[in-house]
Amino acid sequence: MSRLSSTDTPTEEEAAPEVDTARNELVARFTAHLGEGLLESHVDPGVDVWLRVSRESWLEAAEFAKSGLGFGYFSFLSGIDWMPSPFGRDMDSSIDVALGNDERSEIDQTIQHGVAGGTGRFQVFARLNDVVNGLGITLKVDLGDDLTVDSWVAVYPGANWHEREAAEMYGFSFTGHPGLRPLYLPSEFEGHPLRKDYPLLARQMKPWPGIVDVEKMPGDDDEGDDS
């Protein structure tokens, strides 16, 4: 280990402004344009901004971001499943909770949402960048029970493949998409892998034993060390 000394190292923390004017202004302009469509927003000063819009104004938010605010760069689009996994994964437990195991019923299945809230189990979220000013925003939308939302392909052609991936991984459908064929998975694949209730079967057959040395290291007769 090198000696502990505080030399003239350039400090990295820039004084995070308590009021982030650029991002607050973004939120204000979105509110002015979308009105009721903007359900919730969250600004982390100096870091990032999240916006949750209603389903009806999902496409309008994209158009406004592109033409009105200068967010011409499409970064990604994907989904989130907010239901906690019924196959619990606690590293303190000695086994994964397998099918047929009693511990499964004790797992809390209440849905808690993350930043900028939400309703329902599934959300679609997307990220846009403004390359001139170096800002980025995250837009979220809740899907109802029919798991449908407008497609962004008319506004950002790059969303084509992202929506195909989200559709096959979660089972969403995007109205207005030119062709929602599967992207990654072979055609015989059944199910939607990224949903929380899709099990990883190899773990059900042979659960992970946890952080232990399963076999003694050669020459370790007396003490086995936990790694």
Binding site: Y184, L185, F189, P193, L200, A202
Partner: peptide, 13 residues
């Protein structure tokens, strides 16, 4: 044997 992706849904072990 499947390697680090031993539990993946799309990898041949």
């Amino acid at each position: 044997c499947g390697g680090p992706y031993w539990d993946s849904y799309s990898v041949t072990k």
